[in-house]
Design a protein around this nucleic acid. Structure first.
Lengths: 199, 199
DNA sequence: TCCAGGATTGGCCTTAGGGCCAACTACGGC
DNA sequence: GCCGTAGTTGGCCCTAAGGCCAATCCTGGA
C-alpha cells in the first residue's frame, strides 16, 4: 500500500474505541497515535508531520469541531475524518463545509474508515506538495530587491523592457539588469517558467 | 442586492412548502421556478440559465440525491441546496461530498436559506466565469492545425524555436511561421499571455 | 569616515523572435 | 485535373533580450 507507515492521529475519549480503531488502523499498516482529548492532541500536534486525523465529535472539554476550527484558523491543513455516535445533520454539514474529509457515524464500518483514511492521506500529500511549492516561491521572492520585484510583475505580465522602463521612469538598459538578476534569483530561464511559477 | 432577479429552481413535492419558499425567495428579489418532482425539474432544466437549485431530499420517484447525481454525471454544475425533514447524517455527508452548497433541515430558517442561496449564486457565477474562459480557449485551440498545436505545447513550455525545430524534425524558420500563426489564432501577443491562457 | 548593497547607465556583441514576400510540396475533394 | 489547406523553406530586415565589462550615485551602518 502506498500510504503504509503514514501517521493517523486518533482522538477519542473512549479507550475501548481507541484500542479498537488503533488495532484496525495498525493492521492496515498505519502508524497510529491516539489521544483522549482535544487539548492533549493539539498540545502535542506538529503540523509538519504528514498524516491525517480521525476525531470523535463529542469530547470532554473542546469537542471535535473545536479541533477543526483551531486547526483551520491557524492555517493548518491537517485532513480530518470525524466519527460520532450522537451527531446531527447541521453539525455534519458544518464539519464538511469546514473541509472535513468525511463524517462517519458509529459504529464505524472498517471499510468506510479505511477508505476515508486513504482519501485523507491523499489530500494531505497534495496539500503538502502545493505548500512546498509556495514555500519555494516565497523564499525566492524574499531575496529580490524592491526594484526586482517591480520588474518581475511587469515581466510576468508580458511587458517589454522598453515599456517597463517607461513605467518605472528609467531606461531599458537598467531594466535589463534588474530583469536578469531577478530571473537568476527566481531560478527560471524563460518567461514561461516565470509565469507558471508565480501564477 | 447583487443577485436580484437571478433564478432559483425550487423542487419540492409539498405544495405548501413550495408556496412558502417561493414567497420567501420572491420577496428577497429572486425569480423562482418551482417543480413538484425531480423528473419535472430535470426535463425542463436548461443548464445554460444561471441560477441555483433548492431541492427537497425526499421526493416521489427520483429523490434529491438522484437529481444531484444526474446533474453531476452530465457535467452540469448547477449549485444545489438541499432541504429535508427526514434526512440522516450519511445522506447529508454524501450530498456535501458531491458538491452541495448546503444541506438544511426543515423547518428551514429563512435567514439560513437566503444565506445559502447567496452562496450558491456566487458559486454559480464563478463556475460560469471559469466555464466561459475554458470555452474561449477551447474554441481557439480548435482552429489550430495539428502542427500549430504541437508548437503551442513547446512554446508554452518555454522552449526556443531552434529546439522545437529539432524536436519536430524541421528547421527554425518553419517553426517561426507556425508559431506566429498559432499566436494569432490564440489571440495573444506574448508568451506570458499564452502560458496564462493555457494553464 | 569608509564600505556594502542597491539602483543606475553606457558600450559592445550575440542570439532570439517576428514581420513580409515568395515559393514549393502533399493531400483530399469537387 | 484544378483548388484550398497544411506544412515547408529561403531571404531580408528590424526589434527584443541577454551577457560581459565598466562606472556612477546614494544610503544605511560598522
Amino acid at each position: 500500500m502506498a500510504d503504509e507507515g503514514s501517521i493517523v492521529y486518533l482522538v477519542d475519549d473512549d479507550e475501548r474505541i481507541r484500542m479498537s480503531l488503533t488495532r484496525l488502523l495498525s493492521t492496515a499498516g498505519y502508524v497510529v497515535r491516539s489521544y483522549a482529548s482535544a487539548e492533549d492532541f493539539l498540545s502535542h500536534h506538529d503540523p509538519a508531520i504528514p498524516g491525517c486525523a480521525v476525531v470523535d465529535l463529542s469530547l470532554p472539554g473542546m469537542d471535535g469541531l473545536g479541533i477543526q476550527q483551531t486547526l483551520v484558523s491557524s492555517q493548518v491543513k491537517r485532513p480530518i475524518i470525524f466519527v460520532t455516535g450522537y451527531g446531527d445533520i447541521p453539525t455534519s454539514v458544518r464539519a464538511m463545509k469546514a473541509g472535513a474529509v468525511d463524517f462517519l457515524t458509529k459504529p464505524v464500518e472498517a471499510s468506510a474508515l479505511l477508505s476515508a483514511v486513504v482519501h485523507a492521506l491523499d489530500r494531505d500529500v497534495e496539500t503538502r506538495r502545493e505548500g512546498e511549492r509556495k514555500q519555494t516561491v516565497e523564499k525566492r521572492l524574499a531575496i529580490l530587491t524592491p526594484r526586482e520585484r517591480q520588474v518581475l510583475a511587469h515581466v510576468a505580465a508580458g511587458r517589454l523592457n522598453k515599456q517597463i522602463a517607461g513605467d518605472l521612469g528609467t531606461v531599458e538598459k537598467t531594466i535589463k539588469v534588474h530583469r536578469a538578476r531577478m530571473m537568476r534569483k527566481m531560478e527560471v530561464r524563460t518567461v514561461a517558467d516565470l509565469v507558471r511559477l508565480v501564477t
